[in-house]
Design a protein around this nucleic acid. Structure first.
Lengths: 100, 100
DNA sequence: CGTCATACTTACATTTTTGTTGGTACCAAA
DNA sequence: TTTGGTACCAACAAAAATGTAAGTATGACG
């Protein structure tokens, strides 16, 4: 059943991160700015997990100060339509919740 | 962003439960059998949350011993195509992970 | 009267997740 | 030499999620 996928995308920040990466690469610090409530530690952990799960690719540049870029893998990109549908569903559902 | 939807379906058992309910109503005990690793307590909590979020409707019959049936709401049903896509994506991704 | 079945609930313990704080490495520029 | 910027890591603390074990209510049935 969908449990496998659910485990991959179920983390609290996973979908949010993927969402921002859909539009292209982002550096660690850029992601941090986009996710104002996340702590550095959490962002690191989440990105590591995404990398392990091959949803995100991490590229380290040998510069000082360091530069690290994150981008979706091909598999991650394939989530795009699903994210789109989820967003649409979420908006509709949110309305339904609001109108009791 | 999709965070709203993610919070609704992100629970460890949420999608699994919805998945089983797609094929129709199920009693508490039936769900328990389908989810062998869930504890009664967890199943209760998850169903309560799903009910709160209006993904699942709970019907109690005034019988003894008690009978309680769970079914997807209309909003829950609308998740169906998304679950389908997620499952497909999950399978492909699982292959990719297996072949390193 | 005692037993059974179902769908819970409650108290407590354990595990997992997340937050907090402080520190590191590196080189460039002042 | 000191400061600054980036992307972390590690130790500890707090909070949240989950597990465990026991108990509850009800009426039917024997």
């Amino acid at each position: 059943m969908e449990v496998y996928a659910a485990n991959l995308i179920g983390g609290q920040w996973t979908l949010a991160i993927c969402c921002y990466l859909i539009n292209g690469k982002l550096r660690f610090g850029e992601l941090k700015k986009k996710l104002p409530n996340i702590t550095e530690r959490m962002l690191t952990l989440q990105l590591r997990k995404l990398e392990e799960n091959k949803l995100v690719k991490r590229t380290v540049y040998a510069e000082v100060p360091p530069r690290v870029e994150y981008e979706l893998t091909e598999s991650g990109q394939r989530l795009k339509p699903i994210l789109g549908m989820l967003e649409k569903w979420g908006k509709e559902h949110q309305l339904l919740m609001a109108t009791d």
